[in-house]
Nucleic acid binder design. Sequence first.
DNA 1: AACCTATTGTTTATAATTTAACACATAATT
DNA 2: AATTATGTGTTAAATTATAAACAATAGGTT
Lengths: 218, 218
Amino acid sequence: MGKKTMISMAVVRRLPKYYRYLGELLRNDVERISSKELSERIGFTASQIRQDLNNFGDFGQQGYGYNVRALYEEIGKILGLNKHYNTVIVGAGNIGQAVANYTNFERLGFHLLAIFDRNPKLIGISIRDKVIQDVDNLEEFLKSNHVDIGIICVPKEQAQKIADIFVRCGIKAIWNFAPTDLNVPDDVIVENVHLSESLLTLSYRLNEAELFKEKIGR
Amino acid sequence: MGKKTMISMAVVRRLPKYYRYLGELLRNDVERISSKELSERIGFTASQIRQDLNNFGDFGQQGYGYNVRALYEEIGKILGLNKHYNTVIVGAGNIGQAVANYTNFERLGFHLLAIFDRNPKLIGISIRDKVIQDVDNLEEFLKSNHVDIGIICVPKEQAQKIADIFVRCGIKAIWNFAPTDLNVPDDVIVENVHLSESLLTLSYRLNEAELFKEKIGR
DNA sequence: AACCTATTGTTTATAATTTAACACATAATT
DNA sequence: AATTATGTGTTAAATTATAAACAATAGGTT
């Protein structure tokens, strides 16, 4: 029987939240937890939690629940956190610097190899021991260093060009902060962080009640 | 007949993307567009586009399609972009500064009133003409200034405390960059930007194939 | 040791979301 | 002016996601 059913994105996007909550429980020395109790904390139904976890294995035990440490570690493995990733950031503006400085990523196994920019005023400056390099050297760098994840923090006009370089150099995962949709082959994964879209969603929700009040009014 | 059916989040989260694509079309002097053509560009089905838009009104015309400018403006209104919002940022670290410097938000109508931090080394420094203030003055500031959106960019340990202040001062919308879930009353909207969760999702997807290869193997 | 309780993994039911179908209206064409 | 194309709004069908139900099993208790 061919390939196991792939996991839906709905499930996948909940995994990091499980991981976060289990990490907290672990730090609070909680040894075991039932789907019901986790449900009350995390805000998913107990049923959903059991179903989500069962996509990946039988981690629980009847009458007992889940061992917090074991489950935490299992989900870590599922998320690929048992491995190490090399990353580069392209674009050393505000977002690029923010990402570069977020030391927690390093702790999770995401190692920043280099930072690139095209602004001569930034090239040469150091961020966390990394000298910002000229983006013209990006392709050469990627050819002589193994990079797992390329992080795009340039303005949207330049984002596709950077993505093309990443693809050409064999990078299979792109974390994209530019407010645009990148065009890449099917075997390359793009994860977008679109701040504007998040803000506009907030703005929508802030106005939703009023929006429909008006509609009914007329 | 009571209240109009609320719009599902699935739909709402697509609205900013419509807005973005329509803005691009507008800048390229495209006058009209059909759901089919938009579908090919934006990557949603034509059917979905028509259904999404129809939640808010009859914006199209049979045999013609949608007028790009009119639709762009309509969606802008739906997103609440015909209004003006006052915002404050709490936390002037890397992310706080990145958000503060993102001038595009200003263009969309989100006006930054003030920035707060508790670090004495940051207090007094200016970011885009705003002097970083002591977070101890936050509550007082909020009482004498109308703020629509509170932006939390502090470490997770302090995030709830800031959220409590926001709530106490009547703020109804919080944009949260701290990697934690905030506890607020039902009438307060929280929009999270959880960078770690985004990165872990990417990491998961990068490993998914391998994950199930192993599973089958045993 | 037998029984009761807790809690899982899994199946079944319900709800939400997405896609397809199509009647009908407008625009373009002959 | 009549006819054909296009393309919407809307209803129906299919798919996906979530929640509920429950049999099975381990742990705790008398």
